[in-house]
Design a protein around this nucleic acid. Structure first.
Lengths: 198, 198
DNA sequence: TTATTGTTAGTGAATGTTCACTAACTTAAA
DNA sequence: TTTAAGTTAGTGAACATTCACTAACAATAA
């Protein structure tokens, strides 16, 4: 599944529209306008609208997978791995806020079966990477094992998603990375191995 | 802003459609069909579609506010309050899964300015209640103060939202309350006041 | 008691708009 | 000369909304 240059430009434009105006704004008319050509020109590059969305989601999943792999592969400490993974995500979305749809594809939900699968794939990719890191950290006694790795990942992913949502709702006004690192610090405090003081 | 009985029936039908078919399925045609009358009859009760959605969201916010107040007012312990608040939410959404749209209204996002505000209002209501409980718990040294109340609330809300999203993605197949209580237990473990063992 | 008047909740037909998509044609570069 | 990437001008379907109208009921005044 190779993506041509022009196709990439189109799915980037589609991402921009989704971020700006939500799913209802993503019409062939708006997309063509953003690209600066006629609606019909879209069909030179894609079979139809669904293929545009699918290509975007699949591209995002693949890209995120390799980004997360690369950004953590040279790091030993699980704690640092976690930080690196999140920083990579923050930097990516800071540079490409239009691809925030990767996180908030809830709106695309139920559009079609294959779109649904593509969304699950993205969440699965993220979860896969986090799970690996958390499991390693638990083995090395750097993270608590009062909770299973799955359960820790859930809490981390949930916090991360809400962080991104608030950034979007704020109109991208605060520093995603700065505030994100604060959140990461907070999460790390909580998942430290610890004994109750009671 | 009083809601008449017939209006309530209509926004309930709208919620059902949202659950079954998502935002794309919520058309005047489908809504009228579900109500068993002609499309035009909708306009006897609401100015337009936007007013229907707005009324639904505002009703939800008000309702959630009083539910959360009532479900926690007779409880002393902040920990039990937290449990009660979440259980109240779980029970509500189990009974009215169609109103999940209020939580995952990302899809509704940017449909209109007032809809956006109504969504923010719902999140704000939830946050307000949690913040109160967490602050009380911190004062009584039952929750950690390694993080600010705001920061704890963020993590709790994020986990809760993801829990609901997964329930929806699963097609409402798992037991929301059961799994939700497990999540609550996990969160309580993490936010206990604790000292690092390092 | 009985017209008068108004209200509520519905109908079916029609409106104009927007949607994704297509056919036929043009232009320019390889 | 062929092919890629665009154009204009359309399509039918679905959309929210408006229209004139009606049946059933309630309140009031003659």
């Amino acid at each position: 599944m190779e993506i041509k240059e022009r196709q990439l430009e189109i799915i980037e434009a589609a991402g921009e529209i989704l971020t700006e105006s939500g799913i209802a704004g993503l019409t062939t008319k708006n997309l063509a306008a953003k690209m600066g050509f006629a609606e019909s020109a879209l069909y030179r590059h894609f079979k139809g609208k669904e293929e545009i969305i699918l290509t975007m989601l699949r591209y995002l999943s693949t890209d995120m997978d390799s980004r997360l792999t690369n950004s953590t592969k040279d790091i030993e400490s699980p704690e640092e791995k976690l930080k690196a993974a999140f920083n990579n995500q923050f930097e990516f979305f800071k540079k490409n806020p239009h691809f925030l749809v990767a996180i908030f594809s809830d709106g695309l939900l139920e559009e079609s079966k294959s779109i649904n699968e593509a969304i699950l794939q993205i969440m699965g990719t993220k979860r896969k990477h986090l799970l690996q890191i958390i499991q390693q950290g638990q083995k090395q006694k750097q993270f608590t094992d009062a909770l299973s790795a799955d359960e820790l990942v859930h809490i981390i992913m949930g916090s991360f998603r809400l962080h991104m949502l608030q950034w979007r709702l704020s109109g991208f006004t605060f520093d995603l990375k700065l505030k994100g690192n604060k959140l990461m610090t907070n999460l790390l405090k909580l998942i430290q191995p610890h004994k109750s003081i009671l």
